[in-house]
Amino acid sequence: MIPPPVCSRKTLEIGSKHSPEMMCLPFKVFIGNYIESIEKGADTIIITGSCGPCRFGLYSLIQEDILQDLGYDVDLIVIDSIKEGYKEFISNLKKITKTNTLPQLYKSSRLALDLIKRADDLTQKSNYTRAYAVDKNHVNQIMDNYLKTSVQIHGASELINLINKTKEELSNVKLLENYNPIKIGIIGEIYTIIEPFVNLDVERKLGQLGVLVDKSLTPTKWLEHHVINYPFGSEDENNKFKLAKPYLHTPIGGHGRETLGSAIHYKNLGYDGVIQILPLNCMPEIVAKSILKNVSKDLDFPIMTLVVDEMTGEAGFVTRLEAFVDLLSKRREKHLIG
């Protein structure tokens, strides 16, 4: 099993070159990822499907064509929702984990879940630390080092060691005292939120400005909702649906409803504002954006939307982030005085 190389801007470039122009950003990232993995020798590719109502569920149809046209001979395994057929689901899982019995399968899946969770926790801790750190670059160095090492090591236990070591390093970073950072929640389409190079490393950029960042969706949150607590869903995510209800009664596909619920969730937690990341042409997020306008007005809560695609440049992006953070600080001062 070959994990895809850590994604980079290059992944996206390769992906964009070989994808139909109108496809959404995550599709292009996936294609880039596949090609990079194949060049490193992968012969099997695993993706999770989803059955509608967004494009994601049909990705594999086109992706197979593209890979074939490029002359790659690979196995594309699509793990569909259990709803599309339990047998398929399990047999695909077995193919991937190369285990044959259910208990074994259970064990290796637990391990994978555990790793994902640990990695997520680490990212969260780094975001937190960066906001308070006296020297932000110190945090960046620690995390860069972690990312670089993590692709070179083998096996779960080594990875866990690395994560633990990195955590400790983060704990030793010198923090500002009596500092009360601006807090911003990141909401929007899941892949765009998760992949730093797709969202132009928005967490790091905000952290650099001394902002505490939290992401509404992480791999762990997704798994807890869609797999671990299947078919009931996790409490947090279900709560978001409830929050979104006054604005949207029915799901609209993708993560549109979560986006709305998350915005309100962050407001309730006392955050200063949220940023919606919208991959160009993403259908559910466009619907969400038109509703967020009123959420922001009704709750008197600043919400900014950033549209990203493979052409988004660093410069304009940073300016907009700075302007938003500026706005939030001014609002805070006003509240304190008023």
Binding site: P53, P251, V287, I291
Partner: peptide, 23 residues
Amino acid sequence: VSLYKREYCCPKILGLPEMIKNS
């Protein structure tokens, strides 16, 4: 939302009344 079992419309059709009411 749906015109057939296990089928849907485009997300923007699903959210059309909301888009209109909020815009």
